[in-house]
């Protein structure tokens, strides 16, 4: 009798573990599969939408709660370099872009816990109102743990390994068409030997 009761309990516990693990996997590993990809950037147009399915809604709630619907803003994420490696504090990157066909844009650096990196550099983002672009309209931002001589700087100090960038595009113009060419490009400048 006791053995039978134990077997039912084990079955229930196993089901809870399996169900919880599969849900966790869907929310963690499924982020990519619910997105459109433009080069290294990924976009989930269902963010905030009332038409979002249960998986998309759960993923957005976990990684972008209180996001605006795509009618108002688009959120692009980038979390690996041109070699497919996770972004790392021990590397230096250049992010280069042209003017984006939108009313306002910004690029923000988040540590792998989805909050701003724990540093007091006040360089967590660059945006359309403050970026210094060249005469040709091309801008370049340095992503590194120290500013050096860079004019546009995103500080990765204390962001460790696995940080990400979010490109916010507010009130995109009708002719804004995201593509690998129209979005900023990330290039690795160098990495410390320990990475």
């Amino acid at each position: 009798m006791l053995r039978r009761v134990l077997a039912w309990i084990v079955a229930i516990v196993a089901g809870l573990v399996l169900g919880g693990a599969s849900a966790w996997a869907a929310l963690t590993l499924g982020v990519s599969s619910f997105s459109s990809h433009y080069g290294a950037w990924s976009l989930n147009r269902a963010a905030g939408s009332t038409a979002a399915g249960p998986y998309t809604r759960a993923i957005i709630a976990r990684y972008g709660l209180l996001a605006l619907s795509s009618r108002e803003a688009l959120y692009f994420n980038l979390d690996h370099d041109e070699h497919g490696q996770p972004l790392s504090e021990s590397c230096i990157y250049d992010l280069t872009g042209n003017a984006i066909a939108t009313r306002w844009w910004s690029v923000t650096l988040y540590a792998n816990d989805s909050y701003l990196a724990r540093n007091d550099d006040h360089a967590a983002s660059v945006d359309a109102t403050r970026i210094n672009a060249g005469d040709d309209g091309i801008w370049r931002a340095r992503i590194s743990s120290v500013q050096g001589d860079s004019v546009n700087w995103l500080s990765s100090r204390n962001a460790r390994r696995g940080f990400s960038l979010t490109l916010r595009v507010y009130n995109p113009q009708r002719d804004f068409a995201p593509s690998e060419d129209s979005l900023p490009k990330l290039a690795t400048v160098s990495c410390a030997s320990s990475s």
């Binding site: 229930i12 089901g15 809870l16 399996l18 169900g19 849900a23 966790w24 249960p54 759960a58």
Partner: peptide, 14 residues
């Protein structure tokens, strides 16, 4: 039983 509980748990979490 384990599979039923797993499916139910998955749906509740999502």
């Amino acid at each position: 039983l384990a599979l039923i509980v797993a499916v139910a748990t998955h749906i509740v979490v999502i």
